[in-house]
Write a protein that binds this DNA or RNA. Structure first.
Length: 289
DNA sequence: CATTCGGCCCGGAGGC
DNA sequence: TGCCTCCGGGCCGAA
């Protein structure tokens, strides 16, 4: 499940091969078309398949940026607009000569959007679970949730934002893990990195936000930033479906101290799990208080 | 009016 | 082998 570090890795790889290229053709899978016909909105949100093609085909890619867990493709055709993509649970981009060059069958058989570039290669979007999203927007304002996202965690105002939000009426009584994973409080940290940061700080995931001192919350925020940076460095985490645009897995999963562990690496206790904010949360009952 | 909760978009994995 | 259940990021609408 791609979180900030995985999306950052993808963006860093797509940027040099995509910027300045023209999108000569666009393909949408029959599966997605069928979903739209059936009144559902798998992947393509608020836009019909043919309308999506009309808008994107013939445009030039002017920028590729990450914002939280979203990828923003800056496109230009007559005027500037955005193609915004969220990878959901299992979204992956592949930059290849043809679909047959996508390394694994499970990704090949779930390709739903293909952008043919004028360099002879394609950017193919595969999404096994179809939890991903694509939107065509004039700007961020066309999709208001984007405007509500917390600052980038590496921005200088992100810490203050986190401290303020975690003390606000809406969040102060919530479990700290749920607060960390809320994209309006911290951008880009999901289950994996929230779990790791809380373990490194020895904080119980169910502790109410306001029951942690400001000083400790400041340290916790820094722990989140550190784990995100470490993961970017390691090429992201591959649990099952994350791959970079060359089909390679990340390396961060080998450095987890708590996520997915049956036993605490520090004290040997059997770990416990709890449902927090609807997500499975693993923690050490001995180390985390 | 604000918060909470279930639904939605799904295939794959694991249990029986 | 085949069916059932669970899982999940994030938004949305109903309660």
């Amino acid at each position: 499940m791609p979180e900030l570090p995985e999306v950052e890795g993808v963006v860093r790889q797509i940027r040099p091969v995509a910027i300045g290229k023209k999108i000569e053709d666009v393909y949408i899978s029959d599966t997605i078309r069928l979903s739209k016909t059936g009144g559902r909105e798998a992947i393509l949100k608020k836009v019909e398949a043919d309308s999506f093609i009309d808008k994107v085909k013939g445009s030039q890619i002017t920028s590729v940026e990450r914002r939280s867990k979203y990828i923003y493709f800056g496109l230009r055709k007559d005027s500037e607009f955005l193609l915004v993509n969220h990878l959901g649970m299992s979204g992956a981009w592949f930059y290849v000569g043809s679909l047959m060059s996508i390394p694994e069958e499970k990704f090949r058989k779930h390709v739903h959007v293909v952008l043919t570039l004028n360099d002879g290669n394609i950017l193919a979007y595969s999404d096994i679970r179809r939890f991903g999203e694509m939107r065509v927007l004039n700007d961020e304002g066309d999709y208001p949730p984007l405007l509500l996202m917390a600052p980038e965690p590496f921005d200088e105002n992100a810490l203050q934002h986190f401290l303020d939000m975690s003390e606000s009426p809406k969040y102060r009584n919530k479990p700290i893990k749920e607060v960390i994973m809320d994209g309006q409080v911290i951008s880009g940290a999901g289950n994996i990195y929230a779990t790791e940061a809380l373990f490194s700080m020895k904080i119980h995931p169910n502790r109410a936000a306001h029951r942690i001192s400001r000083k400790r919350r400041t340290e916790l925020f820094k722990a989140v930033v550190d784990i995100l940076l470490e993961s970017i460095e390691a090429g992201g985490s591959t649990i099952s479906d994350y791959r970079n645009i060359n089909g390679e897995s990340g390396g961060m999963q080998n450095r987890f101290a708590m996520y997915g562990k049956k036993q605490c690496m520090t004290c040997g206790s059997v770990t416990k799990t709890l449902k927090i904010g609807g997500r499975t949360s693993v923690y050490c009952p001995t180390c985390q208080k």
